[in-house]
């Protein structure tokens, strides 16, 4: 097991190196001179030259690349041109809000989609199957940022059940003391009911919208995988042995069908990382998505590089986690 994980981790090295080459190259073809962002427009030519020299922008590209890689391996992603803070610190401080949002979205999506997928596989061709397919068709087709707006219109403007977009918590509410960094969980742990109420109200809409988008592929995958498992010989054998339908579906078919669903969860999570950029912008959510949006708008190279590297590493590690889960769950993969 340790050997397997080590080998998979080593395999990640070339991929991540490739990723850094891509991010480095990308941010070097951005139009607009970074010097303009670092110095005042009134600065003299000499000052500009000196700052460019100090920042290493006059060195050959490959020297810049190796300096970049050297920094990255020591956790130095450079400083943001805009916030003047180390990019890694910026990203870390914005990680938790995004994590909280995607975590709740993913949980909600899995809780709803997996049973729906199972039900539509077991009762194939009935109304529940049709409803689930229809939901999947709509869920994939509707842009998340548009669903966000429609949801805000309905739940804030028409019904007034939820507040207007306000970020993670109401403006006048003090955030709960930090324990996990998740506002909802911290508020619950500290018994801060006012903060809990406000943070739950704030997260309900963005998380539901993301969950709605994530549900469709999960439900479809669960259905397809369950249908295959239900038609397999071992299921027929279980039925022939006179096991109850409940036991056949949950103990025999589902166990075999769940592996592709786990991979799908990882894929959908990657998709959510993109969707969260859009949703955070609509809901003024102070996470990574908004940060990178601002970084792009102001050609903030190091911040953009840092974000892409950060989220891609997270994504790649997630797939590693899935591979490890596979080995644990499916003895056939064991080496």
């Amino acid at each position: 097991m340790i050997a397997f994980i080590t080998r998979r981790l080593l395999l990640l090295v070339p991929v991540l190196l490739g990723v850094t080459v891509v991010t480095f190259t990308l941010t070097r073809i951005i139009p607009g001179n970074p010097i303009d962002l670092m110095v005042s427009p009134l600065a003299s030519a000499e000052t500009r030259e000196r700052i460019a020299e100090n920042a290493g922008l006059n060195d050959p590209l490959w020297v810049q690349y190796f300096r970049y890689i050297g920094g990255v391996t020591r956790g130095d992603f450079g400083d943001s041109f805009v916030t003047d803070q180390p990019v890694l610190a910026d990203l870390t401080s914005r990680f938790m809000p995004t994590f909280e949002l995607t975590l709740f979205a993913m949980l909600l999506a899995v809780i709803l989609a997996v049973p729906l997928g199972i039900a539509s596989a077991v009762w194939r061709g009935t109304w529940i199957d049709h409803v689930s397919r229809l939901l999947a068709v709509f869920g994939v087709a509707m842009p998340v940022f548009w669903v966000s707006l429609v949801a805000i219109y309905v739940f804030f403007f028409l019904l007034n059940w939820l507040p207007a977009p306000q970020g993670r918590i109401g403006v006048i509410i003090t955030p709960p003391a930090t324990i996990t960094g998740l506002y909802t969980v911290d508020a619950l742990l500290t018994g801060d009911w006012k903060a809990l109420r406000s943070s739950v109200q704030s997260i309900v809409l963005p998380a539901s919208v993301l969950a709605f988008a994530a549900m469709a592929p999960l439900a479809r995958m669960t259905r397809a995988s369950m249908i295959e498992a239900l038609d397999a010989d071992y299921t027929r054998a279980a039925r022939a042995l006179g096991l109850s339908e409940r036991s056949v579906v949950f103990r025999h078919a589902l166990r075999n069908a769940i592996l592709p669903v786990i991979t799908m969860i990882a894929i959908v999570y990657g998709y959510l990382l993109g969707g969260v950029v859009l949703v955070e912008n609509v809901f003024a959510w102070p996470g990574l998505g908004r940060y990178v949006y601002n970084a792009i708008a102001s050609s903030d190279y190091p911040a953009l590089q840092g974000f892409i590297l950060y989220s891609t590493t997270a994504y790649v590690l997630l797939f590693l986690l899935v591979d490890i889960l596979y080995v644990i769950l499916d003895p056939r993969v064991r080496i």
């Binding site: 991929v15 490739g18 950029v277």
Partner: peptide, 24 residues
């Protein structure tokens, strides 16, 4: 195919965002 693996290692929308942002 290893080159393709690298491109596929990025979350799709985020890579598209980076490229579109860089190209203008």
């Amino acid at each position: 195919m290893r080159l393709m693996d690298i491109v596929a290692a990025f979350p799709g929308f985020i890579l598209a965002m980076a490229i579109a942002g860089v190209l203008g």
